[in-house]
Write a protein that binds this DNA or RNA. Structure first.
Length: 589
RNA sequence: GGUCCCGUGGUGCAGCGGCCUAGCAUACGUCCCUGUCAAGGACGAGAUCGCCGGUUCGAAUCCGGUCGGGACCGCCA
């Protein structure tokens, strides 16, 4: 061993003993006849000292920041005046007797010993230097501790951790697959899993009963601040359970995770539950941010008799007028409202009407189209207070709600409405089983294996498919989906019925999902589980908005790896063996 | 596929038509200094302002393109 102790370990109890420490030179303070070194490793910082004439003095003067050195010396208690209360080891120092340079270092491209911002690409290229910094290191620690906790927690409760392959069959469901060419089967391809969904259900058929995995998942879609090519999920499944069992198991786990690792407490436990229908009606979104309590209101009845054509026509055709109170923003500028309107339009709104309630007057671009009585009805229906602004959208219930929902999400941070001292968790339940595609067909709302909520919901596929609900449940914190899961369909006939609704024939289903469908015929137990993003969990715990911060070796927004300089060309011989020929070469290469 | 923002010594920022021979902080180098802990002091080296083209008497500064990065929409759990 190169050391007897770490740099975060020594206290006055060790005074007088000889020790050997090894680490990086964090900082050097050379006073001429007296030189100090802060020696750093993952565990902490210890001050090394040598006076003129003492054996280590010359060597300490010669080292530079980030050199790797090994120091042997005597632990010395510091006097009260010279102790450093900011360091755990600040009560002692090591008087150097010998200093061995294990490795010199070039001047680093950015600071290790300061918490100043550095351009991301540079950090990822020199991630090995970045990780020496306290902030990045502590995120790695947090991530490790959370994962270790999950493993221990689930192991204690009879779950088995089982690895599933990272090369599986491509399925054109959901996101674009990353694919890997096969050498034995030229022209055929493996796919990297977007999640181990089918495999974990098959494990349940195999009688594993309780399974989890810390699984890498891949999808080839354009990265964002909070999503990247590859992420890690806690994949989790249990047999002979219904929705309540899975939810209570996970709520217990996550409550405990937030209690142990969260910077902020959970605002409400047990975690409240809201159905999808209620979430859309009250918040206009299926992952509401409950750190602020403003809710959507219905204005249709207040305008039932209006002559204003924009509202009239919508109401006549069965639509609704929905509203959102923006507290205290009666003085909002045209520019503010335009910004919110642009946001509302991204969710399909044709426009966004605003009504400012100031004293007895109601100011609105559309005021001239409404009677005083109607304006008063709006005030009553929206419960607007003096100084409030009412935003309104007329459309179908879904479009009007969703449009105001995105505006609501924006208002929280923009107007500082959110209570940022706590985490606000909520369960969303009773999702639709299927939903309309833009082309007018049907597709699954979450994943194709989600069980109908009741037998009646399965029957609804024949009469009113959009009304059919499922045993899907999402766990949302502060407006972010932390995990989602469902109880699965465990009977082939039911699964095929759901596929049929989405226009997937029996043959096609057999081709794409044959392994799972076959398994369902050999005694599949009822089961349920979740896929829970680890990256997003750690982000939420740490309060960071950027996934790359919680990954050890991140890629850029264009999927480039600055550290390994990947993707890269491969040996043409390899292409030949694989039966591949590059037809078009991207200009970036 | 699209929109917006950014690109200036190693790092982080300022400068936004001539006053820039490009400023500040920090890092880096040399020297002084025996109780520092973001040590202090003195001196020094280091950038033709991402790249290409244009406008102009004159461009880091304005315009167009391009490359790279970031945020977002599309897409995506």
């Amino acid at each position: 061993m190169h050391r007897t102790h770490t740099c975060g370990q020594l206290t006055a109890a060790a005074a007088g003993t000889d020790v050997t420490l090894a680490g990086w030179v964090h900082r050097r303070r050379d006073l001429g006849g007296l030189t100090f070194i802060d020696l750093r490793d993952r565990y902490g910082i210890t001050q090394i000292v040598a006076k003129s004439g003492e054996p280590g003095h010359d060597a300490l003067g010669a080292v530079r920041n980030e050199w790797v050195i090994k120091v042997t010396g005597t632990v010395r208690e510091r006097s009260r005046e010279t102790a450093n209360l900011k360091l755990a080891t600040g009560g002692i120092e090591v008087a150097a007797k010998t200093v061995e340079v294990l490795n010199e270092a070039k001047t680093p491209p950015f600071y290790v010993n300061e918490e100043t911002p550095v351009e991301e690409t540079l950090r990822w290229k020199y991630r090995y230097i970045d990780l020496r910094r306290e902030g990045p290191r502590e995120l790695m620690r947090l991530r490790h501790e959370v994962v270790a906790y999950i493993r221990a927690y689930l192991t204690d409760r009879d779950f088995w951790e089982i690895e599933t392959p990272t090369m599986i069959r491509s399925d054109p469901t959901g996101a674009r697959d990353f694919i890997v060419p096969s050498r034995y089967y030229p022209g055929k391809f493996w796919a990297l899993p977007q999640s181990p969904q089918q495999l974990k259900q098959i494990l349940m058929v195999g009688g594993i009963d309780k399974y989890f995995q810390i699984a890498h998942c891949y999808r080839d879609e354009d990265p964002r601040a909070d999503r990247v090519y590859e992420h890690t999920q806690l994949d989790f499944e249990m047999s002979f359970v219904d929705q309540e069992d899975v939810m209570s198991t996970l709520e217990a786990l996550y409550t405990e995770i937030f209690r142990q690792f969260g910077r902020k407490p959970l605002a409400r436990t047990p975690v409240p539950r809201v159905t999808y229908e209620e979430a859309m009606r009250r918040y206009g979104i299926d992952r509401p941010d409950l750190r602020f309590e403003i809710e959507l209101v219905d204005l249709t009845d207040a305008l039932r008799a209006t002559a204003f054509i924009a509202f009239r026509s919508v109401i006549d055709s069965g639509g609704v007028v929905r509203g959102l109170i923006v507290p205290g923003q009666a003085a909002a500028t045209r520019k503010d409202v335009d910004g919110w309107q642009a946001l509302a339009k991204t969710k399909g709104a044709k426009g966004l009407a605003s009504f400012a309630f100031a004293g007895t007057e109601v100011r609105s671009p559309v005021a001239k189209f409404l009677t005083p009585a109607e304006l008063e009805s709006l005030r009553i229906a929206s419960k607007a207070k003096d100084g409030d602004l009412l935003l309104a959208v007329a459309d179908t219930h879904h479009v009007a709600s969703a449009s105001l929902g995105v505006v609501r999400e924006r208002l929280g941070p923009e107007l500082g409405l959110a209570d940022t001292t706590k985490h606000y968790a909520v369960w969303i339940t009773e999702f639709p089983l299927i939903e309309r595609t833009p082309e007018g067909g049907w597709t699954f709302a979450h994943n194709p294996f989600c069980a109908p909520l009741t037998p009646h919901d399965l029957e609804l596929l024949d009469s009113d498919p959009a009304a059919a609900r499922s045993k899907q449940y999402d766990f949302v914190i502060d407006g972010k989906e932390i995990f989602g899961g469902s109880v699965r369909i465990h009977q082939r006939a039911v699964q095929e019925r759901v596929f049929a609704q989405m226009g997937v024939s029996k043959d096609e289903a057999q081709t794409r999902f044959g392994a799972l469908l076959d398994a369902l015929e050999y005694g599949a137990p009822p089961s349920g589980g979740v896929g829970a993003g680890i990256d997003r969990l750690v982000m939420t715990l740490a309060g960071t908005e950027n996934v790359r911060e919680v990954q050890a070796f991140p890629k850029t927004q264009t999927g480039y790896d600055p550290l390994l300089d990947a993707p890269a060309d491969v040996d043409p011989k390899l292409l030949e063996e694989l039966g591949l020929r590059v037809v078009a070469k991207a200009p970036k290469a």
